[in-house]
Simulated scan of single mutants.
Amino acid sequence: MELATLALVVLMLAFATIQVGLYYHARKVAQSAARQGVETGRQFGASEGDGLAQAQNYLARYGNSVRGAQVSSAGSSAQQIRITVTGDVATLVPGFELHVSQHADGPIERWTNP
């Protein structure tokens, strides 16, 4: 009986450790996708749509851990671009949902008079 209880506790700790790892990995992928989009969208002559497309391409290649990912540019202005990536984390326990949301922003390159 003690062995069964101890095995259950060890198994739960192992699943919790794996789930924490999946969460942080999904968070990092979402942050990297947002950063890639900002770096593309802030270049001189690029549009906000170019940044969104780059973030979506990044997620298509590496975003298996972020399910149902949504990319938006809410909060962008004429001088600043902001890309937000949101989605759900893959989970080991059915019915247990974790949500991740990451953003990146940066100034848009433009010509100015000295």
Rank of each mutant, 00 (worst) to 15 (best):
A4M: 01
A4V: 13
T5L: 13
L6Q: 13
A7K: 06
L8W: 01
V9S: 11
V10E: 05
V10T: 11
L11I: 05
L11P: 02
M12Q: 10
L13G: 13
A14C: 14
A16L: 15
T17W: 09
I18V: 15
I18L: 14
V20P: 00
Y23M: 15
Y23S: 05
Y23F: 14
H25I: 14
H25T: 13
A26P: 00
K28N: 12
V29N: 00
S32Y: 01
A34E: 04
A34K: 00
A34S: 12
R35V: 03
R35L: 14
R35I: 03
T40S: 14
A46G: 09
A46R: 08
E48A: 06
L52T: 08
Q54T: 12
A55D: 08
Q56N: 12
L59W: 04
L59Q: 02
R61D: 12
Y62T: 01
Y62Q: 08
G68F: 04
Q70T: 14
S72Y: 09
S73P: 03
S73Q: 04
A74T: 13
Q79C: 00
Q80P: 02
I81Q: 02
T84P: 01
D88V: 09
D88A: 12
T91P: 08
P94W: 11
P94E: 06
F96V: 12
F96C: 12
E97S: 15
E97T: 15
H99M: 13
S101W: 09
Q102M: 12
A104N: 06
A104H: 03
A104F: 05
G106M: 07
E109H: 03
R110G: 12
